[in-house]
Structures are given as structure tokens and as C-alpha cells.
Write a protein that binds this DNA or RNA. Structure first.
Length: 576
RNA sequence: GGGCCUGUAGCUCAAUGGUUAGAGCAGAGCGCUCAUAACGCUUUGGUUGGGGGUUCGAGUCCCUCCGGGCCUACCA
């Protein structure tokens, strides 16, 4: 039994996430966590909300509530939606927790002791009207290059030219519109990542089995221009982890907080500590996942994230870990994803374009979404959601191939033999052939899941479901029943066992349907079927079951048309 | 501008440089009647974005052009 630590990139607090966000980290992480548990491994699956930063403050202001209150509410909303999608986190924490506050300050203190923090005095734009420093992209003005009037302080969206806020003509605050801006001096802490350039590069180079997407982004940052740059890890904000050097004040940094990207990954660790606190467990229980000197040396740590998160997880966070000089667990494998697009454009939070987690659950149960999203996970390139494709796949694969198989077997069996596994004659070549085919496919499925090849795993699983229909069609119990009731009984018994097997192996993708199947079958085991062909005899003659309802309903053409209209959104403007 | 990814059947996607480029869906034909008009079998679809090169052999490697996407360090 292995020990697997799994973290999903933590979703930002600022609103409900869309399906693209979901499939980029939380959902595949859940798939992997469920599979690893099913295989009998000890799993710690951690996620949280990422609560600090300017957008959180602005969203709270817009909602007219204090930011702490806003975050507490949104955390609950995201927590419930996660439950709605059956995300099986061991703990869903908050980056604003006391645990994270202390741990973030601890890491900063350690890094300072190791000489890996330097102080930099720089000039930043301050808005007197808003009484706050403005991040570059919260400053708007006219682009000096192309004349576009709504260029941002970091880049002009129209001509893509990179800008400095001072380049803008008629610069103004994107928050209030005020042009009462000035440059003010402010001091910030920088993480000296440059000192780790070589060590990081050797580390990345050693990860030949990582997705190209992960390593290519990391290498780009390591080698681009003058190489890896130091990164500012503090901000002039109210909402965040106050800058402290471990337990002590940090002279000159009063009133400042750590940058969200410094404290967010630390929350992976802190959330595990929150898990221990919440469950009344001692420190050692979470430390054995994270401290290689306290038991974590045999842990395999796997991270899931969208490609936009890769630089922070391959460079900044490892620098924090390595630079602390303490034996914290470093990630072993980083699975990264491209983006999911929506019907020819991008999902857009601001443009209300696409399907969001709450809306998705309002129209269909979670298994439908999980199946489609995971079987179309953007592993090699951006992928695209269309309602036609979604309904075709759900109808064909879930309702027809799996759901209808269960239904046809159960209906036939119950009408001829009652709600129990019939007594039948011995297996014939048909059963042996099917059992062999299934065994091979299950091995494929297992290998794909081990390697986190999500789409390929979904195809293998689909093939396993399909094998049941092939068998049933060839065995034709509806013919056998006319001449040889024992033979028909054997076919039904074998088919019921197939259903039971499906229930046991499908739960990582479709946990609800799996649970329904196992409940209906009165399944004696929910474990991974490890005993080969014998697993297709575990429901013995006389074993009683309760015919399940139809597992998956079909999506109608009318619904597709309606939803397409409803979720189309007005524009194709971008935004995450 | 620079870098990375990507382009394969109508659609979604596979193919350690190695037989005749394969699956699923959609389409066509046949079969079946237990089932949610479901299932099974057979089958039509390809100048692998264009052009050039390396090689005994290229979807795969190199060059070039075209299209799509992402990143580019103060959104997270």
C-alpha cells in the first residue's frame, strides 16, 4: 500500500468557477484520488480556496460586505459546489486560515535566515481616490503605440504591446476611473529564486516523465532572457497574511501582506494541518504527509493544475520549499492541463459565457458532467465544449452503452428468474472469452489511470462497458430461454456480475451511478476487483438484488437548443 | 517581437522513425427483439494544413509558409 498526497490548484475565491476551471485541476485530481483509494492506497487529497489579493477585495467591495465575510461566504459556496460534483477532498481549506498565516510567516522567516529574501524599494502607482496602490493591470489609459483607449498598465489588449503604467496616456484607475494617481515609493520583499536556477533546472531536467506542458513552461521561465528572475512576494494590501519574519515583526514592512502566490501553495501544507485540527488529530498526523523527517519520505506527491499555474508550482513554490532548509516534501509529479473552450470561444466569467458549476448542477446530475469533462480533459491541447458533443456523448456512452446494458439485463433477469442471481449451467467459451477481454481492458484502464492519462482511461472504461453488450448480444439469453433455461440463467448470472464489476471500477468517473449499481446489486465488496475471472462469480446463485431505476436519462434535442441559447452569453470577451 | 503547444476522416481524438495511418460518434447496409428507438456485425469517409529537405523508410525529425491557442514575470 502506497501513500499518495494529492493537491488540486486552489480555486480563487472571487466567484463561482466554470467548467473549464473544474476540469483543469479539481476534477482530474478527484479522479486520481478516487482511483488511488479504490486500489487500496492511503490517500490525502487536499484543496482549498485561494482568498487573498486585490480581486477578492474588489469583489467584496462590490458586494458591499467586509472582505473576510465575503470570503467566508464564498468559501461555503465553493465547498458546497465541490460536494455537488462529488469532489472527495479529505479537506477543503482556506488560505486565510490561522494555520496558513503562521506557516507562511514561518517560511518567510526561514527564507530570510537563509539569505533568500532581499528588500527592494520601488515606485508604484498609487491612487489617492481609491486610497490604494494599484497593480499594473488595474490602471487603464490610452495605448501610446496604437491609440486604443482601454489599454491596461501591463499590456495593451488591442496591439499586444507590453507596457509600463507610466507609458499610458491619460492614465486612470480601473477601479474608480480616477486620474488622481501618483508614483509612490514602497518597499517590497523579493524571493531570490535566481539563486536556485541551476538546482531547479537540474530538478526539472530529471523529470522526464512529466507532461511536456509542465516542463516546457518551467524551462521557458528558467532560460528566458536573463534567466529566472527574483519575484516580489509582498503587496501593499490590507487583505492577506501580514508580513512577519516567523514570529517576529519585520521592520519596515508594517501594513504589508504577502503576495497571494507566496501563501497559496503553502496552503497545501496548512490545509493538511487544518484537516488534523478539524479531526482532533495530533501534529504528527499531518506532518507524516509533509515532513520527510517525520514519515513523508515514502509519500508520492502529485499536483494537478491548469497551465497558467505551472510557473508557480515548478519554480516559486519549490524555491520556497528548498530554500527553507527544512525537510519539506517536494512534489513528485505535476499533471497540468490546457484550457477548455466553450463553443468556439473562451469561457468568460465577466461575459457570462459558458457553463458555471452551479448552473451545471441545476440542469443535470454530476456524473453527466464528470464523464464528459474527464473524457475530454484538455491534456494535449485546448479542448472544446459544445452542447451537441456533450449530449451525443452522454446519451451514447452513459445512457445507451452503460445504462441500457444494466437495464436490459435486469429487466430480462427479473422477468424470467426474479430479483436474484439465477442458478445456471457452467461457463461456456462465450463467458471465458468475455472474461478474458474484460481482464485485458481492465489492465489497460488501470495502467492509464496510474499514469494519469485521463482521456485514454475513459476510453478503456467505455470499452469495458461495451464488452458487456457484445457478450450479451452473442449469448442471446432471450433465445436460450426458449430451449435451455439453465443456459439462460448462466448468461443472466454472468451479466449481473458484469454489472457488479462495472459498479466497482467506474466510481472514479461516475461515483453516483457506481454507488447506485452497487447498492442495487447488494454488492458484497466495493473494493477493486483484483481476483481476475473469479470476480465475475462473486454474485452467486440465489444472491438477491433490487432492480435499480434507469441510471441515466437522455438529453433531448429541445434541451440542447434551450441550453445553447441560455448559456451562450453576449460576447466572446476573454477572462478567467 | 520572443518562446512553447497545436493542426490527422464530417465531429472528438489515437498512432517508441518501421506492415496497408487507426478508434468512437455521425452516415450507409445487414442482423437482433431482452432493453432508455436501445444492442451487435459489416462498411463508406484521409494528398496527416501547404511546400521543400534528411532517411532504406516521415503523421513523427529539420527548414519554410499558413491557421489556432497559451505564456511573456504587478490578475490569480
Amino acid at each position: 500500500m502506497a501513500r499518495i498526497l494529492i493537491t488540486s490548484a486552489i480555486p480563487y475565491i472571487n466567484g463561482i468557477k466554470h467548467l473549464g476551471n473544474l476540469v483543469g485541476s479539481q476534477l482530474p485530481a478527484d479522479l486520481y484520488a478516487r482511483f488511488m483509494r479504490l486500489r487500496g492506497n492511503e490517500v490525502m487529497f487536499i484543496c482549498a480556496t485561494d482568498e487573498h489579493g486585490t480581486p477578492a477585495e474588489l469583489a467584496a467591495a462590490e458586494a458591499g460586505v467586509p472582505v473576510a465575510e465575503y470570503c467566508a461566504e464564498m468559501h461555503q459556496v465553493q465547498f458546497r459546489l465541490g460536494q455537488g460534483f462529488r469532489l472527495s477532498f479529505d479537506h477543503f481549506g482556506r488560505s486565510s486560515s490561522e494555520r496558513n498565516r503562521r506557516l507562511t510567516q514561518h517560511f518567510a522567516g526561514r527564507l530570510a535566515e537563509q539569505g533568500l529574501i532581499r528588500e527592494v524599494v520601488e515606485e508604484q502607482v498609487y491612487s489617492r481616490t481609491d486610497s490604494r496602490f494599484l497593480p499594473d493591470r488595474y490602471i487603464e489609459g490610452t495605448c501610446p503605440a496604437c491609440g486604443y483607449e482601454r489599454a491596461r498598465g501591463d499590456q495593451c489588449e488591442n496591439c499586444t504591446k507590453q507596457l509600463d503604467p507610466t507609458d499610458l496616456i491619460d492614465a486612470r484607475s480601473a477601479i474608480s476611473g480616477s486620474s488622481d494617481l501618483e508614483l509612490r515609493e514602497t518597499k517590497h520583499l523579493y524571493l531570490v529564486q535566481s539563486a536556485f536556477r541551476e538546482r531547479l533546472e537540474d530538478w526539472i531536467e530529471s523529470k522526464a516523465d512529466w507532461p511536456v506542458l509542465t516542463t516546457s513552461i518551467a524551462k521557458k521561465w528558467l532560460r528566458d532572457g536573463d534567466g529566472l528572475q527574483d519575484r516580489g512576494i509582498t503587496r501593499d494590501l490590507d487583505w492577506g497574511v501580514p508580513v512577519r519574519k516567523g514570529g517576529e515583526d519585520w521592520p519596515g514592512m508594517e501594513g504589508k501582506v504577502f503576495y497571494v502566490w507566496f501563501d497559496a501553495p503553502i496552503e497545501y501544507i496548512a490545509a493538511t494541518a487544518e484537516w488534523a485540527d478539524e479531526n482532533g488529530k495530533p501534529e504528527a498526523e499531518w506532518q507524516r504527509w509533509w515532513r520527510t523527517d517525520l514519515g513523508a519520505d515514502d509519500v508520492r506527491y502529485v499536483q494537478f493544475m491548469g497551465k497558467d499555474n505551472v510557473p508557480f508550482h515548478t519554480l516559486s513554490f519549490p524555491t520556497t520549499i528548498m530554500g527553507s532548509g527544512e525537510p519539506w516534501k517536494l512534489v513528485d509529479y505535476i499533471k497540468s492541463f490546457n484550457f477548455l473552450n466553450y463553443d468556439g470561444g473562451q469561457f468568460s466569467t465577466s461575459g457570462k459565457r459558458g457553463v458555471f458549476m452551479d448552473q451545471a448542477l441545476q440542469i443535470l446530475p454530476p456524473d453527466y458532467w464528470r464523464w464528459w469533462l474527464l473524457s475530454h480533459a484538455p491534456e494535449n491541447s485546448d479542448s472544446e465544449f459544445t452542447w451537441e458533443n456533450f449530449s451525443d456523448c452522454v446519451n451514447k456512452e452513459l445512457a445507451d452503452v452503460l445504462g441500457n446494458f444494466v437495464n436490459r439485463v435486469v429487466k430480462f433477469g427479473v422477468s424470467k428468474f426474479g430479483a436474484q442471481v439465477p442458478q445456471g449451467s457452467e461457463w461456456t467459451d462465450a463467458e471465458r472469452h468475455c472474461a478474458n477481454a474484460i481482464a485485458e481492458l481492465v489492465a489497460d484502464y488501470c495502467a492509464f489511470m496510474e499514469n494519469i492519462e485521463v482521456r485514454k482511461a475513459s476510453r478503456a472504461l467505455r470499452s469495458i462497458w461495451s464488452a458487456g453488450n457484445e457478450y450479451l448480444q452473442a449469448a442471446a439469453p432471450w433465445s436460450a430461454i426458449k430451449t435451455d433455461k439453465e443456459r439462460a440463467g448462466a448468461i443472466v448470472a454472468f451479466s449481473l456480475n458484469l454489472i457488479n464489476l462495472y459498479g466497482r471500477i467506474s466510481s472514479p468517473f461516475i461515483p453516483d451511478a457506481s454507488a447506485e449499481i452497487l447498492k442495487a446489486m447488494n454488492s458484497p465488496s466495493r473494493d477493486w476487483p483484483a481476483n481476475g475471472a473469479e470476480e465475475l462469480r462473486v454474485l452467486a446463485p440465489g444472491h438477491r438484488f433490487e432492480p435499480p431505476d434507469v441510471l441515466f436519462r437522455k438529453i433531448s434535442k429541445e434541451e440542447v437548443a434551450e441550453w445553447k441559447e441560455e448559456f451562450g452569453g453576449g460576447t466572446r470577451s476573454e477572462s478567467r
